[in-house]
């Protein structure tokens, strides 16, 4: 969705960066991020979750697995968000669940972006038959419906744990980025600074890593954010229907247990509400950053002041 808009955005980014390819580095991205309100909100949310993920033990009041309290308590000073139908503290579960949810998003995001980059850029750079085959593979993965595919894969590899979950998300999530990166690399292919590198006699590996990749930094980052958002939602969906490891502590498995215990009807609706809120907040952080990236790379989309 929005592929063509992205392509337009890519082109203006290319024009802006091709003028000064040596300056297309991370510091420009960083400065632009902090100047954008949406991006700033995304960075702050992400930062909070990062802290929760790193030191949950210092912040959570109780052991998230311990079934030692009265069941379905309402919110109180002892239990900020009440307790589950199994007598666990919801607030502690929420804090401990951050780690796995965030880890899935980041690891799956990095892996999928890596594959997109590998396939997209080599497809564009090699051209000819390899390009045709790689593009075809990309398109096939792009169109196969992701959730049914994920469900089938996860059902066969049942109880495989976190690694299976992440692999399934990566397998279904890399294609969109590969297509985007390919089209940007394609438009870069005949730039003069690449011709210069070739004339200098550099090997294709060097050209791809040191000449092409730096000019694509912003698109690569945007891509990572897109996959991270996808990974958060996909992991939550799979865990919700019981295809994760139910004894892990994550927001998706909290929803799984809440649903299986009929939390909505049994008087502990917070059990089902708060993990979803956290998933949404984390996803929103990635989405806001991504949206801000679109605005940064495509000035036409920036908000305008109303004028007559």
């Amino acid at each position: 969705m929005g592929l063509d808009v992205r392509l337009v955005a890519d082109q203006s980014a290319i024009q802006a960066e091709a003028a000064r390819p040596e300056a297309g580095g991370l510091h420009i991205v960083g400065r632009a991020l902090l100047g954008n309100r949406k991006a700033l909100a995304g960075v702050i949310i992400l930062g909070i979750f990062l802290v929760l993920a790193i030191i949950p033990g210092m912040l959570a009041p109780y052991d998230p697995h311990a079934q030692i309290f009265a069941q379905t308590l309402g919110p109180s000073r002892e239990h900020l968000l009440g307790t589950t139908g199994n007598g666990q503290d919801i607030f502690s579960q929420l804090i401990w669940g951050t780690r796995e949810s965030l880890a899935i998003a980041i690891i799956a995001g990095l892996l999928a972006t890596g594959i997109s980059l590998l396939i997209g850029v080599s497809s564009a750079y090699l051209g000819g038959l390899s390009d045709h085959v790689l593009s075809l593979v990309t398109d096939v993965f792009l169109v196969i419906p992701t959730l049914p595919l994920m469900i089938v894969l996860a059902a066969y590899a049942r109880n495989g744990g976190l690694a299976v979950l992440i692999s399934v998300i990566v397998v279904t999530g890399w294609s969109y980025g590969a297509r985007q990166l390919r089209s940007q690399a394609l438009s870069l292919r005949n730039r003069e600074f690449l011709d210069a590198a070739r004339v200098r006699g550099e090997r294709s590996g060097y050209v791809i890593v040191f000449e092409i990749l730096p000019t694509m930094t912003s698109l690569i980052v945007a891509n990572f954010l897109g996959v991270a958002l996808y990974a958060v939602l996909a992991a939550a969906g799979l865990q919700f229907i019981g295809l994760g490891n139910p004894s892990d502590m994550s927001w998706g498995t909290m929803l799984f247990w809440a649903q299986n215990n009929g939390a909505l009807n049994a008087g502990s609706p917070l059990w089902a509400i708060v993990p979803g809120l956290c998933i949404g907040l984390l996803g929103a952080a990635f989405a806001l950053l991504n949206y801000a990236f679109d605005e940064i790379t495509n000035p036409a989309l920036r908000p305008v002041r109303r004028r007559r």
Binding site: G237, F240, I273, G276, I279, G280, G283, A285, F286, R306
Partner: peptide, 30 residues
């Protein structure tokens, strides 16, 4: 551009698109 539909709705939907479909369903049920 700059009207209500342009300035309010897109950011709202950027945020709602980050929530899992099924969870929105749960909230609707609740």
């Amino acid at each position: 551009r700059g009207g209500i539909l342009d300035s309010v709705l897109p950011p709202i939907f950027v945020v709602t698109s980050a929530f899992p479909y099924f969870w929105i369903g749960l909230i609707c049920i609740l």
